[in-house]
């Protein structure tokens, strides 16, 4: 897919930095929320066939907990905060002070707690991004789903769907405690968002 024209490598670096700053802030917020150390990996930016996007979280059929926010404003896109069931259970145990939270059959209370976590993290990701770029970026009200990764992520690919069979994904993995229980921030800017995004950061488009 011809998304970037010239200086593609440099532009990918810029997007990686966006993931770094956004997810860095979100990880800090999560760490405060849990009062625990939260680590993150260096973000990856990749243009992937639709089919491979869900592979990042274990494959299309893997059951995950996902909070979805649509980003509106100057650089619209889709944002997902994706956790394994294990990770979500752990977050709920810590936050709600309960010992035996077990998904995928969550209560309303547990779902709305997960949703709120996504809201806080998504919000801090976007705020730092808005500060950096001077763009107006607002999240919609978040929505949570516990389902197959493929079914959930399909929503984030619709805007790319009209352009081709690949999508650009900014993926940041974070983990709290051992590396088994990891979560992901996925930011999938709409294809139309790139010129503005790069412009705001002073990256020439041609």
């Amino acid at each position: 897919m011809e998304l970037f024209g010239q200086n593609a490598e440099f532009k990918l670096d810029v997007l990686r930095e966006i993931g770094n700053i956004g997810a860095g802030n979100a990880a800090t917020a999560l760490s405060r929320l849990l009062d625990k150390r939260v680590n993150m990996k260096v973000p990856t930016v990749s243009v992937l066939p639709f089919e491979q996007i869900a592979d990042r979280v274990g494959g299309a059929e893997t059951v995950v907990v996902a909070v979805y926010l649509r980003v509106v404003g100057d650089a619209p896109g889709n944002m997902f905060f994706i956790m394994s069931l294990e990770q979500a259970n752990r977050l709920l145990n810590v936050l709600l002070g309960m010992e035996d939270v077990k998904g995928p059959g969550y209560t309303e209370m547990e779902l709305s707690t997960l949703c709120e976590i996504g809201n806080i993290l998504g919000g801090s990701y976007l705020t730092s991004l808005a500060d950096l770029t001077g763009m107006r970026l607002t999240p919609t009200v978040p929505s949570v789903a516990v389902d197959m990764a493929g079914a959930i992520l399909g929503y984030g690919l619709l805007q790319f769907g009209t352009m081709g069979d690949d999508a650009l994904l900014i993926d940041t993995t974070f983990f709290e405690g051992d590396r088994q229980a990891e979560g992901h921030f996925f930011f999938i800017p709409d294809p139309d968002a790139f010129p503005r995004l790069f412009h705001s950061l002073g990256v020439p488009m041609e």
Binding site: M148, G150, A151, Y155, L158
Partner: peptide, 14 residues
Amino acid sequence: ASGESLRTTGLGSC
């Protein structure tokens, strides 16, 4: 066409 099964995973809005 020769007795195979067809499978697709993770249909959401698709």
